[in-house]
Amino acid sequence: MCCNLFTLWRRELAAYFLSPIAYLVLLSFLVLNAVSFLLMVNFMDGRTTDASVMQSFFNTFFYWVAMLFVVPVITMKLFAEEKRMGTLETLMTAPVSDASVVRSKFLGAITFFAVMWLPTVAYAWILNYFAKDATPIDWGPVCAAYGGTLLVGLLYISLGLMASSFTHNQIVAAIVGFVLIAVIFFLGFLSRIGPPWVQAFFGYLASVEHVSDFARGQIDLRRVLFYISATAFILFVTQKIVESRKWR
């Protein structure tokens, strides 16, 4: 069981790096973040701000563009491509459970997501190395910010994975994935308008607030639990969708 999961996960990861799309995604992601980082450093140069560069880095327009657009591209092929090529049939008739197939695809995408973010860790170091009078980086909030990014990533990737299990067309999977993610994302903004109970309710979905809280070093266990349980639920639904071929 666990060996199967490992074998499947390795295949998912290999599938990413064997396709040119992966490199395109990595490249555009890094370009986007580099631009974001550069603009921010230029803007903050010589000014006094109440947030550090690394803290602001996780709260920019660019950060959310990357999250909203890159995740559906990462997840679109997961099931859709296997369905289109018919390899879902060879996969599902090997002695593996539907659950481990869903999990391995999810873990593969998460691993790719993490690999994608990894180079940005260097920004903190670059900042220190080239600054005239370097201030020591506060690694706590930086780690928390990456943790928050990963949590949001879990939820978004599981939504993208679910979208991919609906169809055998990757483009449709990407669009549906994007819509699902965008709905969650924009519902989060309702936490700023309306009566208090509406604000409180949609506060749970306000990813923008959550990530900026994490980047300030404020780790709220409620947020952690929300993302993990929502992801688990969506993976469960995805598994049922994959199983639905059996009762349709």
Binding site: A14, S19, G86, T87, A94, V96
Partner: peptide
């Protein structure tokens, strides 16, 4: 299966190695 679906991006030995592990 019908139409013999395979992963076109893998090498023959890689594919068989993966399938052998899976099975």
């Amino acid at each position: 299966p019908e139409n013999n679906p395979l992963y076109p991006d893998m090498r023959v030995t890689e594919y068989l190695g993966y399938r052998a592990a899976l099975k």
